[in-house]
Design a protein around this nucleic acid. Structure first.
Lengths: 253, 253
DNA sequence: CGCCGATAGTGTATTTTTGACACAAGAGTA
DNA sequence: TACTCTTGTGTCAAAAATACACTATCGGCG
């Protein structure tokens, strides 16, 4: 929560720099140890969790806005970002900023405006990311999708919509490629599919089908270390992968 | 094109009523005689074709905006509308309204603002629609998708994106239901699928598969009149249809 | 009235893909 | 070396997709 002076300063800058009434919220997905994760923030001096979000500069393409916002708020840069929905309920942020309501007259107060928010989902390699909060955030951390805290605003809806989109686009977007590490085992990839689809898959049929797409390259050396049979390592054959995505992977899961 | 007085009046009303920097454009699809059609407008005293579009009232949910805009501009009401993409290039409308640029100072001039536009696609029963232009439009008419005029602004991109979305969502949205008349023949439905997918399908396999979904009811009486064997009439079994859509029709085309 | 052309309805053999399942192989551990 | 756990691979039956051919019925025409 901001002091009156901070609020005034912030609102002034915001009005000068950003398009009014428009925001962007990002759902950043990562995958680690068989679990889907989302990057969430908490705000200083305030309880509750938020998706990383921000505003659109007056002369900035929105794709770049989304990228910039993520970079500013989480230090992530040049990652896979995909617009998925606009949330335009006039009430969606109405009560939320009540705390600032009386500090400034409505016409000066950026936060009592109505905001449409454009939802983007992002896919990152969990291991590449070292979440670190920006000046406004107290914390920035990965949360397990199965164990989410309560989210502020309509961010739970945005998150759910992102997840539904992910599920629907699994055959048309490079989701595996962007969420997995460079090299991975077949069981790890299967776990990702199972998590996104929320459904158990048969190990052998999954492997047959995946290999059938012709988008995987098998590395010579298996991964050692576990107390079991060493699994082969795979990586995506980017050329074939992209060609296959244009058609979509046929068949359902 | 507006006179200076009309422009002043319009800008004043717009600033009072609408959210700035945000617009909505609608791609209205219809299907008639085996061809996909799109509803396009021309503007009075100006060449060129546009998608029907408009603005969001300050306190209006965007879904209602889209509905209202279509109603105002084309008299269509309560039709299937689906948000599909936001177009946010800062240049997308920059040059377009140059004709109004010098009539009013930039801060008063609604049209020299940057606009993000939210794309909606709409599906209507062609026969229900009697296109009629509103006060701003000179004409409002169906255009064949294979024979489109040149579109203003980035409306060609918006239209193409809508069409791509339609193709991807064919198995998840009630596209057939909303584009076909209440009763239709199997070859007519097949033609719709062929048109959207831009691909020939086998008559017999199409029929078997469609019937296999269990979403069609066959009417007792066939359609008479043509100089050929009378085809059966079908209609959608709405209950099964909606249940099936939740899962998605499995398999590709 | 019967034949023709065109379109619609239905069936069947073949191939491909899915789904279910079992066993062998390798790596660490006791 | 035997055991456990996990991964890799093969096989068979069922289901689905594909390719293709025949029959039925309408209106029109001689």
């Amino acid at each position: 929560m901001l002091t009156k002076e901070e609020l005034e300063e912030y609102c002034k800058t915001a009005r000068e720099s950003y398009l009014p009434h428009i925001s962007i919220d990002c759902v950043v997905f990562g995958f680690h140890e068989g679990l889907l994760k989302v990057l969430l923030l908490t705000v200083k001096n305030e309880g509750g969790w938020y998706l990383p979000g921000g505003f659109v500069l007056k002369d900035e393409p929105i794709e770049l806005s989304a990228n910039r916002i993520l970079k500013e708020r989480t230090r992530l840069d040049e990652i896979f970002l995909q617009q998925f929905h606009v949330f335009g309920d006039p009430q969606r942020s109405k009560q939320h900023f009540d705390m600032y309501k009386d500090m400034l007259p409505p016409k000066d107060n950026w936060f009592t405006n109505r905001f449409l928010t454009i939802g983007y989902y992002a896919l990152v390699d969990f291991c590449d990311v070292n979440p670190s909060p920006d000046q406004f955030a107290a914390t920035c951390s990965w949360c397990d999708l199965n164990d989410l805290p309560e989210l502020k605003l309509d961010h739970a809806l945005i998150l759910k919509t992102a997840l539904d989109t992910l599920r629907l686009q699994l055959n048309y977007q490079p989701i595996g490629y962007n969420l997995m590490q460079k090299e991975f085992t077949m069981p790890e990839l299967q776990k990702l599919y199972e998590t996104i689809l929320d459904k158990k898959l048969d190990r052998r049929n999954f492997q047959r089908r995946m290999l059938g797409f012709g988008i995987l390259k098998r590395s010579e050396k298996p991964r050692k270390g576990g107390a079991h049979k060493a699994p082969y390592l795979y990586s995506f054959d980017l050329e074939n992968y992209e060609a296959a995505l244009k058609e979509g992977f046929k068949g359902g899961w």
